[in-house]
């Protein structure tokens, strides 16, 4: 009897030990196959001459050569640099300022916070379409100001090859800075009041206490925000599609749009896969140092 009970509890123990693994197994398997499996698959495809369908005839780095010889890819890559840098920098700046202002214990903070956070709830397609109308010279800002009587006013970045990429920055910043604000606000609320008090006792003014005390404490928030924003930047596809359609010409193309066009519309799966791999390396270049510093930090702690 006692032996039996012992045995049963043995099984139960073992089951308990195995249960989490069993429950996690399907997800893990799906992850391995659908994420890493397909990354490898895409990597392999980028070395083949695949056009409309996968074809396993290997051609070495030919697709990558073709990719970098393509002027449209150059435009897409340099757009990504411009867009990524401005988008991250401006979103961080605006988000941080909004968070600091909101943190001054003002009235109606909840309502204001919701208003600023709201764009995040809208999909990029909606953002893109709305800004397409706002920035259209014949419909939006230019027409409005002209109707006010300033008939020489010109604001036509959307239809200008040189400037179109900046309209994407505007729309993306509008969408994401509220989210950055929320992250910073949470960070600011976590700052120990006694530290700020101590700084004030030491005679620091508001500017100094933010610059020397609070912002350094917020360093992890900066890191998370940058990582999340750079993901958004590299993956940006729907915003471009809705706002400019990559135009005028292909002046506002980003790598994700390039990849989609070549892999799915143009039956150039090899070049599409090659561009996807370059994008993956872009993400890794940001992610690996970040993970490295994070993991090293937690090991030390």
């Amino acid at each position: 009897m006692t032996q039996n009970a012992h045995k049963r509890s043995g099984i139960a123990d073992r089951l308990e030990a195995w249960l989490p693994k069993i429950i996690l197994a399907p997800t893990t398997l799906a992850m391995i196959v659908c994420m890493y499996g397909f990354i490898l698959w895409t990597g392999a495809l980028s070395f083949t001459k695949s056009r409309m369908l996968p074809q396993w005839e290997f051609v070495g780095f030919l697709q990558f050569e073709k990719l970098f010889a393509n002027p449209r890819w150059d435009v897409a890559l340099s757009n990504l640099v411009v867009f990524g840098f401005l988008f991250i920098a401006i979103s961080l700046l605006i988000g941080l300022l909004l968070a600091i202002f909101l943190d001054q214990k003002i009235r109606g903070e909840g309502a204001i916070r919701t208003i600023y956070l709201y764009p995040m709830a809208v999909s990029f397609v909606v953002t893109g379409t709305a800004w397409k109308w706002i920035l259209n010279p014949g419909l939006g800002i230019e027409k409005l100001v002209r109707d006010f009587g300033f008939t020489d006013f010109e604001f036509r970045w959307l239809v200008d090859q040189e400037m179109a990429i900046y309209t994407i920055v505007i729309a993306a910043v509008w969408q994401s800075s509220g989210f950055v604000m929320a992250m910073f606000l949470a960070g600011l609320r976590g700052v120990d009041d006694s530290l700020v008090k101590a700084a004030q006792i030491d005679g620091a003014n508001a500017w100094q206490s933010y610059w020397h005390v609070i912002l350094p404490i917020l360093r992890p928030v900066f890191f998370s925000a940058i990582v999340i924003l750079s993901h958004i930047a590299i993956k940006s596809f729907d915003l471009v599609q809705a706002l400019t359609g990559g135009g005028p010409g292909y002046a506002s193309d980003l790598p994700a749009n390039f990849m989609y066009t070549f892999a799915f519309n143009r039956a150039q799966m090899g070049i599409g896969a090659a561009s996807a791999m370059i994008m993956l390396f872009g993400v890794l270049a940001i992610l690996v140092p970040y993970l490295y510093s994070e993991l090293r930090g937690s090991n030390r702690g």
Partner: peptide, 14 residues
């Protein structure tokens, strides 16, 4: 082919 017409598109639109 789609690849070639795509290339012509790119040049024409640009």
């Amino acid at each position: 082919s789609e690849a070639v017409s795509g290339a012509i598109y790119d040049v024409a639109t640009n």
